Amino acid sequence: MKKIVQSVLNFALVGSAVLLLVPAAHAAIDEEAAKALARQNKCLTCHSVAKDKDGPAYKKVAEKYKGKANAEARLIEHITSGEKAKFPDGHEEEHKIVKTSPPKDMEQIKNLVDWILAQ
């Protein structure tokens, strides 16, 4: 009986360790893929990593959302819905919807957003 309990505990420990590692591996950002998607969608026309353009710098976006639980969901909504974006001169335009290949690939969208938030 003692051996069975020991085996169950060992299995639980190994299983827990694997579960802890899976989100970390899944959360890895593919920086090159994120940059490529940003270039394909002309995101870098209005944004840059470090300097404000017509849109805020990604470093500023990351700073604004740092520590906020809804950061990823909020940015995904912003780049996939076409909601209004405010410009420095005060006018508003619909934000361009980020397109992926295959269409609406949420892994690519999430990778882009995670890259932005990592700046």
Rank of each mutant, 00 (worst) to 15 (best):
I4K: 04
N10F: 14
L112C: 02
K104T: 03
M106C: 01
A85C: 12
K51S: 10
H95R: 05
T45G: 00
K35I: 13
N70F: 09
V5C: 13
A71M: 05
I109R: 03
A36E: 14
D105I: 09
K3I: 15
I29F: 02
A12D: 03
A85E: 11
W115F: 14
G90T: 01
A17E: 04
E32I: 10
V18E: 05
V61H: 03
N111C: 05
L112W: 06
L112F: 06
K84N: 05
E72W: 07
A50G: 03
L9T: 14
Q40S: 11
N10H: 04
V14A: 12
D52C: 00
G15T: 11
E63W: 01
K59T: 15
P88S: 02
A36S: 09
L44K: 01
S7M: 13
K96S: 13
R39S: 04
H26M: 14
H26S: 14
A57I: 01
T100L: 14
G82I: 10
G90N: 03
V61A: 04
M1E: 15
K42F: 10
L37E: 08
V61I: 15
I79K: 02
E72K: 13
I109C: 02
A118M: 11
N70T: 09
E83D: 11
Q108R: 11
P88H: 03
T80K: 11
T45H: 00
C46Q: 01
L117Q: 13
A69I: 04
D105T: 05
K68T: 09
E107T: 09
H95S: 08
A28T: 14
L117D: 08
K51N: 12
L37K: 07
K60E: 13
A38I: 07
R74F: 09
A57T: 01
I116T: 06
S16Y: 10
A17V: 12
K96Q: 13
K35D: 02
K51A: 05
